[in-house]
Design a binder for these strands. Structure first.
Length: 475
RNA sequence: CGGGAUGUAGCCUAGUGGCUAAGGCGCCUGCUUUGGGAGCAGGAGAUCGGAGGUUCAAAUCCUCUCAUCCCGACCA
């Protein structure tokens, strides 16, 4: 008997760890807070990269690469930025056997080094916009780490764009937020709320931070991607100006936006179950697995038959043929369920007799008999079904665990029992935000774009409030 | 960084001062099996997280240290 996966209702954190380790997505590394992304985890990341990168290219961006080492003085140029990041940075002080004259920071994010370069590259409005993305690793010295969700080193992409006008930069910020929303919903099958972050939750150095916010199966919120309007802060810090058409000098407007390997953690916590990983078809590195079921006497015949099925499927789907002789079919079923492969094709003597195969979908476990001649077509429908129903299930779950609440006592009770998302009005004061965080451990996850017609009263102080926001406990 | 827990073979666990550190899973060999984690036989694998100390004697007691997990504070 292999190790069991801790059921979600017993211990959600442990369940998550069990999935990551047993599906062999990642492993702990010898270095505190770091992880090794194993081939199956990395295959997922490559799939995510490939799709999102295509979306970046479609919206006019190019990839580039900037160094991991950043001079200390650069980090310190933007006041809020340094305040936000300096405490969690690792710094190289020695190299080549000598102490460095100026310490070099391992990048926690690349705004500063990139804007030092933009200063060299931008002189005129003709040089704008610059639309650059980089795929990179970054390092943040976190106190408390969790596989994929928060590690000391993680992989991400960071887009950094430079624009002539504020309007253009804001437009870019929202465009990329929508790219993230589209990716989350159409590929990851995870519904997300979009909107702005409150002052206290925004990125250090941003004017405005926008977020895609998802609900996990334990009803906690998770920020899955952010897009920042940086205004002219970094342009001013690095003195990046351009000459306008009519000869004036103006500071450049900036955006930055990113998603990370955290998306893999998000994916796990949104869809997986007590049997293991559940991967939406559009992100599955392996879409179909074929398992021949034979006895010693009929092995050759069954494997032959299964192989023909494999031949007919593999052109259309990323397919694995598991004819390993050492493990029983039951063992294989369990194993491929842990790995989260969306569709399993069982091929045994019974199926062979009827010129059929058995299809089993990972999300519901539902079995269907289908003629070999129709198998590719049927898998196509199944894949679409799984993709859609994962999304709908997550959407229903979020809806069922979201409540408008206007009374603070009711709010407290809500989070003492079930919890979830609370839609409540907020007057905008950081005092009220701070108080509700202290008293209920909830934070403002997002100030949604979609606002009710009528204003209300602040959930905390009862004063008139223009904005309705979403409160939740968060990762 | 505070509070708690844990660390014994690849994994899970027993052993709470005394003989050669025990068992299950996994792994290797062979045979038999195979429609939901198969069976039998044989075998390999551990300086008990690390360092120091107490003792005739330490996995076991003490000190320090490291790592992981859980709960907080801080963060993508």
């Amino acid at each position: 008997m292999a190790e069991r996966i801790t059921p979600r209702h017993e211990n959600y954190s442990q369940w998550y760890i069990d999935i990551v380790l047993q599906a062999k997505l990642a492993d702990y590394s010898p270095v505190k807070g770091c992880m090794v992304i194993r081939p199956r985890g990395y295959a997922l990341w490559e799939k995510i990269q490939q799709i999102i990168d295509g979306m970046f290219k479609e919206t006019g961006h190019s990839n580039a690469y900037f160094p991991i080492l950043i001079p200390e003085s650069f980090i310190q140029k933007e006041a809020e930025h340094v305040e936000g990041f300096a405490p969690e940075c690792a710094v190289v002080t020695h190299a080549g056997g000598e102490e460095l004259e100026e310490p070099l920071f391992l990048r926690p994010t690349s705004e500063t080094i990139i804007w030092s370069m933009y200063k060299k590259w931008i002189q005129s409005y003709r040089d704008l916009p610059i639309l650059i993305n980089q795929w990179a690793n970054v390092l943040r010295w976190e106190k408390r780490t969790r596989l994929f969700l928060r590690t000391t080193e993680f992989l991400w992409q960071e887009g950094h764009t430079a624009h002539a006008t504020s309007e253009e930069a804001v437009e870019e910020t929202l465009r990329m937020l929508n790219v993230y929303k589209k990716f989350a919903e159409e590929y990851m099958a995870i519904p997300v709320l979009t909107g702005k972050k409150s002052e206290s939750e925004k990125f250090a150095g941003a004017v405005d931070t926008y977020t895609i916010e998802a609900m996990m199966q334990d009803k906690k919120a998770l920020q899955a991607g952010t897009s920042h309007f940086l205004g002219q802060k970094f342009a001013k810090a690095f003195d990046v100006t351009y000459q306008t058409r009519d000869g004036n000098l103006e500071y450049v407007w900036a955006t930055s936006w990113g998603v990370s390997t955290r998306l893999i953690g998000t994916l796990i916590m949104a869809h997986s179950d007590d049997k293991g990983l559940v991967i939406p078809p559009k992100l599955a590195p392996t879409e179909v697995v074929i398992i021949p079921i034979y006895k010693t006497g009929n092995k050759v015949k069954v494997v032959d038959y299964a192989k023909r099925v494999y031949e007919s499927i593999k052109g259309s789907y990323s397919t694995e043929f598991d004819d390993d002789d050492q493990y029983s079919p039951g063992w294989k079923f369990t194993e491929w369920e842990i790995r989260g492969v969306p569709v399993r094709v069982e091929v045994g003597p019974k199926d062979m007799g009827a010129d059929e195969v058995t299809l089993v979908r990972r999300d519901t476990g539902e079995r269907t008999l289908v003629k070999v001649s129709q198998v590719v077509e049927k898998i196509k429908t199944l894949m679409e079904d799984i993709q859609n129903s994962l999304f709908l299930r997550a959407l229903e779950f979020r809806k069922g665990n979201t409540r408008p609440i206007s009374d603070y006592e009711e709010f407290k009770q809500y989070f003492e029992s079930d919890g979830g998302f609370a839609e409540s009005f907020w007057c905008g004061s950081s005092d009220c935000e701070e108080r509700i965080k202290e008293e209920t451990k909830t934070t403002i996850r997002v100030i949604p774009f979609n606002q009710p017609e009528k204003p209300g009263t602040c959930i905390v102080c009862g004063e008139k409030a223009e904005q309705q926001v979403v409160f939740a406990r968060a990762y």
